[in-house]
Design a protein around this nucleic acid. Structure first.
Length: 229
DNA sequence: GCGACAG
DNA sequence: ATCTTGTCGC
């Protein structure tokens, strides 16, 4: 690739169109709601997907593993077209197996805190028409660090006059993570849920950590941290 | 003109 | 994301 930062007009257009479907409606998690937290490790084009399943305010249930294919090569700003399809396929297969659908998705990547407001969390939320939250370890849009060093401190991710997300300090004195709505949720609820899920002293929310660890082991040929389906 | 951008 | 050793710290 001569220039990996080059825009892809057809996909940029698809992003704008899908971004118009993002709903900022409220979602209030209820005790017992099924939450899927997702991560992928890649070995070339093989996508080793891990889905952490938990019930809100009840606790972790299990991690599931599924081998899928990457949607395309990685390109900056087009991450959703690489990681979205394998996540979507794995989610649908798992919901079929469980006979139950997730109430909300927690995704390792951005939601609307994206140049065209279509990060992978929004892509997935719109595809499934389900509440989703984006949670990234690095910013895509410019943002300051939260002024406060205490757990829960935030600073706004702004684009023009619009609030698109927060840099959120999940633990005192650690680097923030970057959260935004994916679909069918409001930013304050997303912030509260992520903070509540990052309750074990780590910067990254527990269910995403579990998915990351399980996907890592799975990609290395081990599946002892989850159930393959 | 050059550099840089989730995972 | 992945490629990769040792090293520091809880």
């Amino acid at each position: 690739m001569a220039n990996p930062f080059e825009e892809i007009p057809e996909l940029a257009e698809a992003q704008k169109k899908m971004a118009q479907k993002v709903a900022r409606t409220a979602y209030s998690p209820q005790k017992g709601d099924l939450i899927f937290s997702l991560d992928i490790q890649y070995v070339e084009e093989d996508a080793f997907v891990a889905i952490d399943v938990l019930r809100w305010q009840e606790g972790a249930e299990k991690v599931y593993l599924s081998l899928q294919k990457a949607g395309m090569e990685y390109r900056p700003r087009y991450f959703s077209f690489r990681e979205g399809p394998p996540l979507l396929a794995a989610i649908l297969a798992l919901e079929e197996k469980l006979g139950e659908k997730a109430s909300c998705l927690l995704v390792d990547g951005h939601g609307i805190a994206h140049p065209r407001r279509l990060g992978v969390a929004s892509w997935l939320g719109v595809q499934l028409d389900r509440p989703s939250i984006g949670m990234a370890k690095r910013p895509l849009l410019a943002v300051d660090d939260p002024a406060g060093m205490e757990r829960g401190s935030v600073s706004p991710i702004m684009q023009n006059e619009e609030l698109l997300g927060y840099a959120l300090r999940t633990q005192a004195g650690v680097k923030p993570i970057y959260i935004s709505i994916g679909h069918k949720i409001d930013l304050e609820t997303a912030r509260e849920m992520v903070l509540q899920l990052a309750d074990q002293g780590y910067r990254i929310p527990e269910p995403i950590r579990r998915a990351d660890h399980a996907a890592r082991a799975f990609a290395k040929g081990q599946s002892h941290l989850g159930q393959v389906f």
